[in-house]
């Protein structure tokens, strides 16, 4: 069982790292999500793998380690907040930079966004661009 568990965690980490090394934001957010699953599983494993022994007093003779569970519980919620933040950052970056590349360099394929950006900025030519930096 331990071997399988470890293999699964390893494979998940491998997949998430590969995704996090990609250039477009969607893949990175996916990678982050996978990574937080893997990390939660890893943290959870530090309490050992026990079947049918929840940490509720009076239910079992020998309850499993409750501490990693408490840690992972908050980690799940904070992981959600982090994923959300990264995702919104990606949206904001696309709105400001006109592309979904983490390096901010325009990908030639995202023509819709570019066209849209041009259209939006034409009437507001005199206005200052909203914090968007051009590299």
């Amino acid at each position: 069982m331990e071997l399988i568990y470890a293999t699964v965690v390893g494979v998940m980490v491998t997949c998430s790292v590969f995704l996090m090394l990609r250039g477009h934001t969607f893949a990175i957010v996916m990678g982050l999500t996978l990574m937080s699953y893997a990390v939660n599983l890893f943290l959870f494993a530090s309490g050992g793998l026990a079947l049918h022994k929840p940490a509720i007093l009076g239910e079992t003779e020998n309850p499993t380690d409750p501490l990693p569970q408490a840690l992972v519980l908050t980690a799940i919620v904070i992981g959600f907040a982090m994923t959300a933040f990264a995702l919104i950052l990606a949206i904001r970056a696309r709105a400001d930079l006109g592309n979904d590349q983490v390096d901010g360099r325009s990908a030639p394929t995202d023509s819709l966004a570019t066209k849209d950006k041009e259209q939006r900025e034409k009437p507001r030519a005199t206005e200052k661009a909203s914090g968007g930096k051009s590299r």
């Binding site: 494979v11 980490v13 491998t14 890893f42 494993a45 309490g47 050992g48």
Partner: peptide, 22 residues
């Protein structure tokens, strides 16, 4: 990615097969 995954996997396995002083 494979190297890091293998490392984390090994770490998980090493952790699971050792007694925890908690």
């Amino acid at each position: 990615a494979t190297v890091v995954g293998a490392l984390v996997g090994t770490l998980t396995y090493a952790m699971l097969t050792r007694p925890v002083n908690s």
